[in-house]
Design a protein around this nucleic acid. Structure first.
Lengths: 365, 365
DNA sequence: CGGAGACGGTAAATCGTTTAACCCTGGACT
DNA sequence: AGTCCAGGGTTAAACGATTTACCGTCTCCG
């Protein structure tokens, strides 16, 4: 691997000059510039960004710390962040925590050692955020994504969960449902709490009393959707509709419904957070609260880079992105018919979205 | 940000000693070690990996270059690679090329500047691989993933596409189908070619003549599955079964089928590459060639790190991972009944997998 | 004709580590 | 008592860039 010294030798100039033509930090005469460029090309020289980073005490790497990239909600976010970052000359270093705070600590430590310029963080839930506080204290910019870390003063790009959930449940109520179950995420997480809050708000607004037997606490994973779904369907009359707090749990629920022979929306109306591709392809098309993942990633990255470059100063800001409710087939008017009754079979006519909102995603998948 | 100098001062030793206790490269007396560790803790010191990398002329970063992380096939691969890498103290730097060779060049250049130790590459198709050749010539290890770059001597972890496709089509043939359509990927890509090859092999073996009107060239994107699906369904009698070369095109096809009111498998049998989560949740459960993404990522990362560390030497190896055919509902015996006929409605009894092969993925999603 | 800039280039310090070479001290051994 | 050696520590030279300060030369102009 050639270094700047070899380039300088071959071009017959000093290394300072080479550096100047590369970075454009000083005028150089045409002839010299030409010679330097030739030398670079001939040697297939790439400036050592590591050496540069050491000298300027700054890297152009952004850490991206996520629970699990395998969760289909995150890739969109990553794309949004990466595209924005790459445009401005930054790179993304990604790492998955599996929602384990211990792993998160190790990852953050490693990222600190690498002197990343900033970190995009969807933190694992945990009671101790000292590693993040120390990180910020040491001067690394942090932007929280999707979830805030309690007690940590950082910028954040969040979804307006309360609002999304409220509108979604409101929609079910407007359809005439009064017994609406909810499958939540882990209630330790802010996200889950907020969605539950939105659910409560909507019920309250409609003077529907909360029933604890209709609240099922899951953990945002498919398996919990499946298990809780089975429980929920045990006593079917309890609910005529269910609001599920994320996409993968809905998959679990649908599987449970299939096992039990419960049909949607005939026997049970369904509305969910997230808009997995599936939701737009398979029947029943799901009524969903769509999170603009790409945009969230892009906004978060922009804020982070602005902080790093000093283009943004002042106290931490918190951006709430408003999700969209897309009404599709899985939510239908309450018929008052007990679950499984034949009369429930034909679907009532409701105005609903046709097909997929293909513009929701900025990228073909 | 404290440096090793400050730690040394506070502990009252030389920086060499500090380095030795951190790296364990030399014995130090208990008392001194204690003092150094305290100093490190008190200052919240993290060794500057950038400086270290410069000195040892080696980073512990692995570049991961993919077409598009938004394609659900890739996250699993990334997880496999990342978990393996992190265990061994490496980090993944990811970047998406959007299948554009120009973007790939820029990304590879940047990665070279960052002196990544190696690169995991699912290259964008293109006629010019000079940037990869130069990369390898400069001493960076490269492992190709999912697709080989023609003319480049590197290790590769690939799927046995021919075999996967052959077995899949063979299965359709065994069900009695003789008019089997195929929706391929972009035939510039090796992957698409190989799958087409497997299709041809299976037909040949059964003495079924190839019909060019049954071959639809797509591009691995949902939209092309949709468009070609519409074409294919135009003249429905042509095919009684269709083999689709990846998961997202299948989504497109299913949408087209829905539009046209064609039912699966009643009117048309379906078998596909890839096993999106959906395939296991929604009806019809799809017969699919399952690619072990996590394993592919893990194997590729292992090979790459072994190369980097000199644990593996010798000429490039090419590993073919064998996919599994999971038979589900979407493929049914040929009934000889024209498309749309009422007689085709009841599904015949075939031995098939129950539910999802949950063990296929090492991680909950 | 002399001096002031402008211009184009270079020398050298520096960033925070690693690590080979060296140095000191205090037993152990003969 | 003198010699060795092991153990524990330090010194100082890299690594490959950036960047400040400096230095000739040339030109222009009063």
């Amino acid at each position: 691997m050639p270094t700047i010294v070899e380039v300088a030798k071959r071009a017959g100039v000093s290394i300072a000059t080479v550096s100047h033509v590369i970075r454009g930090t000083k005028r150089v005469s045409e002839g010299v510039e030409e010679r330097v460029r030739n030398a670079i090309r001939e040697l297939d020289y790439f400036p050592n960004e590591i050496a540069r980073s050491l000298k300027v005490a700054q890297t152009r790497m952004l850490g991206m710390v996520l629970p699990d990239i395998t969760n289909p909600f995150f890739p969109e976010i990553i794309r949004g962040a990466e595209d924005t970052a790459f445009e401005r000359g930054y790179f993304l270093v990604t790492a998955n925590t599996d929602e384990q705070i211990g792993r998160e600590r190790r990852i953050v430590a490693a990222l600190r050692s690498y002197r990343v310029a900033g970190i995009l963080l969807a933190s694992a839930p945990g009671n101790d955020a000292s590693h993040i506080l120390r990180l910020i204290a040491s001067g690394v910019s942090v932007v929280c994504l999707d979830r805030q870390v309690p007690g940590v003063p950082s910028d954040a790009v969040l979804l307006d969960n309360v609002r999304g959930a409220r509108e979604c449940v409101r929609h079910l109520i407007q359809l005439g449902h009064r017994s609406i179950a909810i499958i939540t995420g882990h209630l330790r997480t802010q996200t889950a709490q907020e969605r539950l809050q939105g659910y409560e708000d909507a019920l309250q607004e409609a003077d529907i009393p909360m029933a604890s037997k209709l609240i099922f606490e899951g953990d945002f994973r498919e398996e919990s959707g499946y298990q809780l779904g089975k429980q929920l369907l045990q006593k079917p009359k309890n609910a005529s509709a269910v609001f599920v707090c994320n996409g993968v749990m809905t998959l679990g629920l649908l599987k449970a419904m299939e096992d039990k022979g419960v049909r949607c929306p005939d026997d049970l109306s369904l509305a969910t957070f997230d808009d997995l591709t599936i939701d737009r392809t398979f029947h029943p098309h799901l009524t969903a609260v769509v999170q603009p993942g790409y945009e969230m990633g892009a906004r978060a990255a922009t804020i982070l880079m602005d902080r790093i470059e000093g283009k943004m100063t002042g106290s931490p800001s918190s951006l709430r992105i408003v999700p969209t409710l897309v009404i599709r087939e899985s939510s239908a008017p309450f018929t008052g018919t007990p679950v499984g009754s034949a009369a429930a079979r034909h679907r009532p006519a409701v105005q609903r979205a046709q097909g997929a909102p293909r513009s929701a995603s900025q990228n073909p998948s």
